[in-house]
Design a protein around this nucleic acid. Structure first.
Length: 509
RNA sequence: CGGGGAGUGGCGCAGUCUGGUAGCGCACUCGGCUGGGGGCCGAGCGGUCGCAGGUUCAAAUCCUGUCUCCCCGACCA
């Protein structure tokens, strides 16, 4: 619904009024995604999918650069595969889609309707992740130490039957990339796990302008079946944490389950050490909650399907001339580059009022919108409006100057988003909370309250009795940061016991 | 699975208590005026009121059953 003329913000509710509601509205108004008529499932709309494709392209390049190759494995996994790894079963059993039949037949008790027929001898599950089925292939492909390391990546959809779906953040079906590698020893496998976390960190920070904390997951938050789970954690504008990517060292348990063995140099039989790592379409949600404002989506230029939109003001006799000028400007801009690729430009000459068109692109997060009318043709200037400066009049820039400097403009916007997010992460991470009272106060803000504290970085004992305290505050250990700064003799912020590690605490999505 | 709420044109809703043949805003279509902060006027299109059964001369409205969705809690990329 379009806001009234006098509305200050294009999105209702605003972040301060209702953060989750704001998020939904941004997603909807930007035409990124919407809930489908299937419970918990979403439709990713063209604008949202284009963003995902840009992410995919960049990440795919980075993954391949580490030596992994893309492949595709089955959607259906025999139940017995899952059963083979105990930890895995515990983690996923409660959220499985199970296929038990393979045909439909007329239902005699309910004319006009169909019912499942042809029961399967062994039920199939729809993959929640592919460790088990990829393991089967690995077992077949790996015979010798010469076959290692084996590094595979898959772009796929997965299904986890979530109790409480939220568009883009937690849906029953989502898209992701899952890497699976097998190595001769633990050291090599752990290196792979760390290398991929680094790929994710660079991608999040460099491409999505989203600063992250890198760390190890506590035992409670670890991936089911993993020995070690590393993650990148981003802070949303409401101070809550969002796990944006994970990388696991799986030890030899999946190798045992799928019998992935190889002959070493001495002719002995050994189990491989495996890793897995992934990021999902949840990144779209993270991106939105990191950068957007009360006027809608704000896209870093790197992931903006259109980086510059030209809105020609077509009226009267000058219309053909303006239309031609818009196309010419677009083509010149496409001759410039940003991030090593041609600048992406859209000319929006639809038969609607210019303000109407412009606001649509504002809400879609386009970094720069230029309105081009007869006046500009005469003056040789452009009315340039950056997504970061919607107030007041547009900036007036000489046409040639703008074209020549467009890469700089986009770079500035990209950097600005990162700097803003980084400043938020820094200022809303408390490093000086030492006792439980302050800790409680920090986290006691209302749900959805954007003034809620944020992260707390503090010494932790890992003692079991600290967990109920966190639960009560709806907070959790987000990670044990890789850059540990635990002063000797520290005591646990929750229990007062001797601390063994420095932890980042937060509320999480 | 527990606790709340809701199903009425594409979207958002009113009407339901006190049965009487469906209405509003937005969107959409057409015409005109407009057009650089998302505009105005006029004329239109569009709904068997979630589904099934019942009560009644008459049901969006009352009764019974059923399905679905949303919100809150336990689980999670």
């Amino acid at each position: 619904m379009p806001p009234s003329k006098n509305a200050k913000a294009a999105i209702s509710p605003t972040r301060a009024e209702d953060f989750p509601g704001w998020f939904q509205a941004v997603v909807k108004d930007a035409e990124v995604a919407e809930l489908a008529h299937v419970r918990g499932s979403m439709v990713i709309r063209p604008w949202g999918y284009a963003i995902w494709e840009l992410m995919q392209a960049e990440l795919d390049r980075a993954i391949k650069a580490t030596g992994s190759h893309n492949a595709y494995f089955p959607l259906f996994i025999p139940l017995s595969y899952l059963e083979a790894e105990a930890g895995h079963v515990d983690g996923f059993a409660k959220e499985m889609a199970v296929v038990t039949h393979h045909r439909l037949e007329a239902d005699p008790e309910n004319p006009g309707h169909l019912r499942p027929g042809g029961e399967l001898a062994e039920p199939l599950i729809v993959r929640p992740t592919s460790e088990t089925i990829i393991g089967k292939s690995f077992a077949k492909w790996i015979n010798s130490y010469r076959d290692l390391p084996l590094m595979i990546n898959q772009w796929a959809n997965v299904v986890r039957w979530e109790m409480r779906p939220r568009v883009l953040l937690r849906t029953t079906e989502f898209l992701w990339q899952e890497g699976h590698t097998a190595h001769a020893d633990e050291g090599e496998a752990r290196e792979e796990m760390e290398r991929m976390l680094d790929v994710y960190r660079e991608f999040a920070e460099g491409f999505l302008a989203m600063p992250v904390v890198t760390g190890e997951k506590s035992a409670e938050e670890r991936f089911p079946g993993a020995v070690t789970t590393l993650s990148i954690e981003a802070m949303m504008q409401d101070g809550k944490a969002l796990q944006a990517g994970t990388s696991h060292y799986l030890g030899t348990s999946f190798a045992e389950a799928a019998e992935i063995e190889f002959s070493d140099r001495e002719g002995g039989r050994q189990l491989v050490h495996t890793t897995s790592w992934g990021v999902s379409t949840r990144l779209l949600g993270a991106l939105i909650m990191s950068h957007s404002d009360d006027d809608g989506l704000r896209l870093p230029p790197s992931v903006a399907p259109s980086q510059v939109v030209i809105v020609p003001i077509l009226r009267g006799d000058a219309a053909p001339e303006v239309a031609a000028a818009a196309e010419e400007l677009a083509s010149e801009l496409r001759g410039r580059s940003f991030g090593g690729a041609p600048v992406r430009v859209t000319v929006d000459g639809r038969d609607r009022g210019p303000a109407d068109r412009r606001w649509e692109w504002v809400k879609k997060g386009v970094p720069v919108v230029i309105e081009l009318g007869p006046r500009d043709l005469e003056s040789g200037e452009l009315a340039v409006r950056r997504r970061t400066a919607l107030e007041g009049k547009p900036e007036s820039v000489g046409r040639e100057e703008f074209v020549a400097g467009v890469e700089g403009v986009l770079t500035e916007i990209q950097r600005g988003y990162f700097d803003t997010a980084a400043a938020r992460l820094e200022s809303r991470t408390a490093r000086d909370i030492t006792d439980l009272e302050d800790f409680r106060r920090w986290f006691e803000g209302d749900e959805g309250d954007s003034t809620m504290g944020g992260f707390v970085r503090a010494p932790w004992s890992e003692a079991p009795e600290s967990l109920p305290i966190l639960e009560e505050l709806k907070a959790s250990v987000r990670c044990l940061p890789l850059d540990q700064q635990l002063p000797p003799g520290s005591t646990c912020v929750l229990t007062g016991k001797p601390a063994v590690v420095e932890a980042v605490f937060g509320k999480a999505y």
